[in-house]
Computed example of a mutant assay.
Amino acid sequence: MTQKGLGKGIKALLEDFDLADESKITKISIDKIKPNPNQPRKHVKEETIKELAESIKEKGVIQPIIVREKEDYYEIVAGERRWRASQLAGLKEVPVVIRNDISEVESLELALIENIQREDLNPIDLAIAYNELIEKYNLTQEELSKIVSKSRSAIANTIRLLKLPEEIKNLIINGKLSEGHGRVLLALEDEKEITRLANECIAKQLSVRELEEIIYFKSQEENQEKNVSHETKQDKKDNDLANVEEDLIEALGTKVVVKGSLNKGKIIIEYFSREDLERIYLKISK
């Protein structure tokens, strides 16, 4: 199923969510709540959950969790981090807003947008979320940029990170490499070289700028090697053709020019009189 005009639907849902009537907030047992199995947030930093848990111990859950009622439990629509942190804080009950009017599709939309708007979402999960929205709803990057209030170029650069090898994406997810390092590594095609430089960045704590310089100088060296190799081959080819020319000049006793390569070209044989032409002809036709 593809949808255009997704932005309007999401904005309406978010407005409704932000202006949720406090009289509709209720408390339910934390054990009766389960996360959405389609939650687009693939990786959660444990330290951020611990920090949130400490905050909840002091101030409680300030923003209610949005849930949908299922057969014998409640499924989270928005607020999984708050739910996890509440568990860690030892809460028995949490405040929720029950929204049974939210469909499966709308639930996924809210989860995606909630994740995209979080500042601590790692770049790879953000790229996955962007890509899911684009593919699921047949959006262009320009349309998505208006929905999530990001520039089209920012979205394009983030999605490009998905082209990195899995090992490098995991390094970014775990915070060992930055998004900037990932973008610079995309300039390389050899996966082994990408991995080698990524590990070098971690070992030497290289900045993005330093990595750019390494890759720039590496490309310059490779270009020089290619040029030297080409010139060497060209010199060898020219020497071989020169030897052929000399042999023909000696054999025919006249000026000979060989043009082209050893595989294809033309031979120009000069003559200076009728007698010269007949002499050359006799030599060739023997």
Results as ranks from 00 to 15, higher is better:
207 S>Q: 07
171 L>I: 01
75 E>H: 01
80 E>Y: 09
70 K>Q: 14
246 E>S: 13
202 I>L: 13
151 S>N: 05
37 P>I: 09
197 L>Y: 03
165 P>H: 06
267 I>G: 10
191 E>K: 13
280 I>K: 01
154 A>H: 06
209 R>G: 10
181 H>K: 05
235 D>G: 08
72 D>V: 04
167 E>T: 07
104 E>G: 07
13 L>W: 01
177 L>N: 01
129 A>S: 15
40 P>F: 04
152 R>F: 12
181 H>S: 01
197 L>G: 00
102 I>Y: 05
264 K>Q: 12
191 E>S: 14
161 L>T: 03
149 S>A: 13
118 R>I: 01
34 K>D: 08
207 S>R: 06
85 A>K: 00
18 D>T: 10
6 L>D: 02
137 Y>R: 03
207 S>M: 05
145 S>A: 13
229 S>V: 12
184 V>Q: 02
107 S>R: 04
172 I>N: 00
277 L>K: 10
231 E>G: 04
54 E>W: 06
41 R>H: 04
241 L>W: 00
236 K>R: 15
74 Y>I: 02
85 A>C: 04
15 E>H: 08
180 G>V: 04
274 R>N: 12
148 V>L: 07
208 V>R: 12
87 Q>P: 00
38 N>I: 08
160 R>T: 13
152 R>D: 08
263 N>V: 09
246 E>A: 14
146 K>H: 13
116 I>V: 08
196 R>Q: 07
69 E>G: 10
250 E>M: 07
220 Q>E: 15
240 D>M: 08
204 K>H: 11
6 L>Q: 06
183 R>H: 11
34 K>N: 14
102 I>F: 04
259 K>P: 02
117 Q>E: 11
33 I>Y: 02
68 R>Y: 07
158 T>H: 00
222 E>V: 13
151 S>F: 02
15 E>V: 12
275 E>A: 14
81 R>Y: 06
31 D>C: 11
132 E>N: 10
122 N>D: 09
7 G>S: 09
2 T>E: 10
50 K>F: 09
33 I>C: 04
224 Q>F: 15
44 V>D: 05
10 I>P: 00
98 I>N: 01
277 L>Q: 06
198 A>T: 02
75 E>P: 04
8 K>Q: 13
206 L>G: 02
71 E>P: 05
159 I>Y: 00
197 L>S: 01
231 E>F: 12
239 N>P: 03
38 N>W: 12
97 V>W: 03
179 E>C: 03
269 I>A: 05
17 F>I: 12
73 Y>W: 11
199 N>R: 13
185 L>V: 03
175 G>F: 03
5 G>L: 08
12 A>Q: 14
8 K>P: 06
107 S>W: 00
76 I>F: 08
262 L>F: 06
34 K>L: 15
54 E>I: 07
114 E>F: 02
76 I>Y: 00
13 L>S: 03
43 H>I: 12
